Computed example of a mutant assay.
Amino acid sequence: MPFKDLTVLVVPHNEIQVHRFKISRWLLVSGSVVCLAFISCLGYLILTSYNKNFDYLKYINLQRENRILTQKLEGVENNIAEMNTKVGELMEENQVFRRIAGLEVLDEQVKEVGIGGTFVGNYDELFEINGPLAKKIYKQEDQIDVLLRKSKLIDQSLQEAIQSLEASSDKWTHTPSIMPTKGYISSFFGRRSHPIYHVMQPHNGIDISCGAGAPIIAPADGIVTVVKNQIGYGLTEVVDHGYGYTTRYAHMSKSNVRVGQKVSRGDVIGFVGHSGITTGPNLHYEVYVDEVPKDPMNFILDNYVP
């Protein structure tokens, strides 16, 4: 049987009379529709309000994160500026170090450590999100990249200078630079009248007058190549110091080394005598550079004997 109307009976507990209410079908349907519509609207309003509040909170959080990120970037920018100053100071110290090592200083253009290349890639989404922030980030990345390249340049330059200094240090230890014995110079380098034959002839060294038996020391590191008696020179030693340097010691009374022996600056290699052609005890001392005789006085620092 089709539903037409709805009758509602209300029976109070304390009353005998029963209340009867009759609701038509259309009123019931209309009321139900209105209630559903109201509930739907209320739900929509609640959901919309929640979404708006959620979006607002999200916006507030994003603003806060953006503010913190901006502050951090400013801190990084300050650190980069300090690093750039320090790298500049290190670059100048490196230039001084290169001069000490006997190297040419780095050219100003080399110090810029420029690079080249073509850009390959897609448009960065960061620019779409926040253009100014993206520019700051990429500017800092470029600055850090330059600092890294400059640091590598300084490291390579310092390594080159260290190698040069090590080579120079080794050369220095093999360069004659001190008096081979204590005494006074009785005859200098150059042409002179021979003390025995009284004829003018070259004198390829200096004569150091001192008492017989005075120790003779090596003026630099080297290897003994000659220990023998030679005409005119008497007992003679020759030391090859490398780098083209050779020294000769003549008129010795006794040798303290053997051929092939390595000697260091300051080692006693023999003793003063008057063997060979001489008027008295003295050391005849010669210095050769690439087999060319040089004035030994140019290889003596303040007549120093350790």
Rank of each mutant, 00 (worst) to 15 (best):
R25P: 01
P176M: 08
F299E: 00
S40I: 12
S32P: 00
Q95G: 06
F299K: 01
M200F: 11
E65A: 11
E104R: 11
I216D: 00
K22F: 04
N122F: 08
P132R: 03
G183Q: 09
T247P: 00
G213N: 09
T70G: 12
A218E: 01
H284G: 05
E166A: 11
S253Y: 03
K171S: 07
P219F: 06
V238H: 03
K135F: 14
S168K: 14
T278K: 10
G88E: 12
I16N: 13
R64H: 13
I269H: 03
M83E: 11
K135W: 04
G213W: 07
A214M: 13
G131N: 12
K136D: 11
Y233A: 13
E125I: 15
P180S: 09
K262D: 06
K111S: 09
C210E: 07
V10W: 10
I23S: 02
A134M: 08
K52T: 09
T70K: 08
H251P: 00
W172A: 14
K111P: 00
L126I: 11
V29N: 04
F299W: 07
G114R: 13
K136G: 04
Q163K: 12
D55F: 10
S187E: 08
V10A: 06
G213I: 10
F188R: 13
I154N: 04
T70W: 00
K182M: 12
N66H: 07
V289H: 02
A161F: 03
Y50F: 10
L301M: 09
P195N: 07
H284P: 00
V268G: 03
I100H: 06
A220G: 04
M179H: 04
Y304V: 09
P202T: 05
V18W: 00
M200S: 14
V227T: 08
V34S: 13
D145V: 03
P296Q: 10
P219H: 03
L90S: 10
I100Q: 05
F21I: 12
